[in-house]
């Protein structure tokens, strides 16, 4: 099973193995980061996620903060403000207690900073080898912001594509820390909550904010491809506009990876109606999470997701199977 890097294999695993298991009652339509649930006439957003990361601690964050931010962001991508979180820990026997304590403290701090209480949780200790040190499972409950309903299928031709901040930092940091490649001294994970940024974007753009996605696994390329596929549109990005920090660029060049495929945990990509794009961009830049927000491209009628390169060529930015294997003969 090579389904781990957020590429096409994970998509296939979901559509061909997991969804059929849910039977005919499974809701159709594009997969969203969080689901809309109506309870007694009240619209709520519900999200769940499981976190596995090696190493548990890395520059800019750790598995605990990542779990909180990831779940808050999944709610935020559907214009949800977090109301409550749940946390479950699966602990491998032998994990130093200090590590667990550190993660728990990080969860508490991240939740407090995001302004959301952790309301319940669970802990299981499993034998050696039954888990890899520590897994963190979260659920998040959110309340929908009034005035907007961004959805993965919402992108329209002509929409402007906005990106809230630099890409590639999280993936490079985690990989470099794990493998001891040396890049981790120059770069840190961007892990952070984005719900306040989204609230300001919705306030500025309203229903003109058509689609939001946090480009986590599979990076910007996967996020944009998923939105394009769900919306039935094409996207043209501009390579020169993509904010790639120099250490990330150097690391990616060494690793033979396109920064557009590297995971992020603290930025979002937004598809916004052209007439609202400037207002939304201004609102983004007014917040620290969006201070470096930029316009990176536009939605086209159809065709593949592509990037206009620095030299003016138009390169296809597709969804790879898993880890990128060279296509050169």
């Amino acid at each position: 099973l090579g389904h781990g890097s957020g590429g096409r294999l994970s998509a296939e695993l979901i559509s061909e193995v997991l969804l059929p298991g849910l039977g005919p009652a499974a809701p159709g339509g594009p997969l969203e980061d969080a689901a809309l649930v109506t309870v007694g006439g009240c619209e709520l957003l519900l999200s769940t996620d499981a976190y596995v990361v090696d190493p548990l601690f890395f520059p800019g964050g750790d598995i605990g903060a990542l779990a909180v931010h990831g779940t808050v962001n999944d709610l935020a991508m559907r214009a949800g403000l977090p109301v409550a979180l749940t946390i479950a820990y699966v602990v491998e026997e032998g994990l130093p207690l200090t590590d667990l304590r550190r993660v728990a403290a990080s969860v508490g701090a991240a939740a407090a900073a995001a302004g959301v209480p952790v309301v319940t949780g669970d802990t299981k200790v499993v034998g050696r080898g039954a888990a890899d040190r520590l897994f963190v499972i979260t659920a998040g409950l959110g309340r929908r912001l009034p005035g907007a309903a961004p959805t993965a299928a919402g992108a329209r031709p002509g929409d402007v594509v906005l990106l809230s901040g630099p890409i590639g930092c999280h993936g490079v940091t985690v990989l470099s820390t794990r493998e001891g490649l040396g890049f981790e001294s120059d770069v840190a994970s961007d892990s952070q909550p984005l719900h306040r940024l989204v609230a300001d974007m919705i306030a500025a753009g309203g229903t003109g904010v058509h689609a939001l996605r946090d480009p986590t696994r599979g990076g910007l390329a996967a996020a944009v491809n998923e939105i394009a596929a769900a919306s039935g549109v094409g996207v043209e990005l501009v390579e020169a506009a993509l904010p790639v920090p120099e250490p990330v660029r150097a690391a990616c060049e060494m690793l033979g990876v396109d920064p557009a495929y590297v995971a992020n945990e603290g930025c979002l990509v937004a598809f916004v109606a052209p007439e609202r794009a400037d207002a939304v961009l201004t609102a983004m830049r007014a917040r620290p999470e969006g201070a470096a927000a930029v316009r990176i491209g536009a939605v086209t009628d159809g065709g593949p997701v592509l990037v206009r390169t620095m030299v003016g060529a138009r390169r296809v930015l597709d969804l790879p199977l898993g880890e990128q294997l060279p296509r050169i003969c």
Binding site: E179, G180, L181, G182, M254, L255, V257, E323, L325
Partner: peptide, 17 residues
């Protein structure tokens, strides 16, 4: 740096099919 990083990538099997 390239020499050291490439060596490390190779030894750790990182992006080195």
């Amino acid at each position: 740096t390239e020499r050291a990083t490439v060596r490390r990538m190779v030894e750790r099997g990182v992006h080195s099919p």
